[in-house]
């Protein structure tokens, strides 16, 4: 139902999430890091960007702040792995930078899919 840009550097998580989203009838474009995501955004306009926060090369935070202004209609969901590399502060920061909601791995995928549906219906209602 929605076009989702998935930005995640862990290959297993990326593949798994991709399948989960496709099973829920969404169209998925994946990127392994912030740079690939920026490239994909040049040619696609996804409804939702689902991005990890801590990634090599360009961090998720930088990606969010960059993308927020260029694609104002796109909803952003931030996800993080917890642990030392990602103190809870980063998730709060991502929300203040423009992510509508954030999740910590391991994520309850049912909740994630519900959040996606909610954001999508909000968008559609806003358009109409």
């Amino acid at each position: 139902m929605a076009e989702i840009l998935l930005v995640e550097d862990d290959e297993l998580v990326r593949d798994m999430l991709s399948q989960v989203l496709q099973r829920a009838s969404h169209k998925v474009f994946s990127a392994a890091n912030g740079e690939e995501a920026t490239d994909l955004l040049k040619t696609h306009t996804p409804d939702i960007m689902l991005t990890d926060i801590i990634m090599p090369k360009k961090s998720g935070i930088a990606l969010i702040s960059e993308v927020r202004n260029k694609h104002p209609q796109m909803e952003i969901i931030a996800i993080s792995g917890g642990g030392r590399l990602d103190p809870i502060g980063y998730l709060d920061l991502s929300e203040s930078l423009g992510a509508s909601i954030s999740f910590t791995k391991p994520i309850d995928n049912t909740a994630l899919l519900m959040a996606i549906d909610l954001l999508l219906s909000n968008k559609q209602n806003a358009v109409h």
């Binding site: 099973r23 792995g81 917890g82 642990g83 030392r84 590399l85 791995k105 994520i107 995928n109």
Partner: peptide, 27 residues
Amino acid sequence: GTLAGGIAHDFNNLLYAIKGYIEMTRE
């Protein structure tokens, strides 16, 4: 703390992947 913190991030990724695949397979 450093050890735990460092491992936790990767561990959470692994747990998430395992959970996700298992849930899908169960369906």
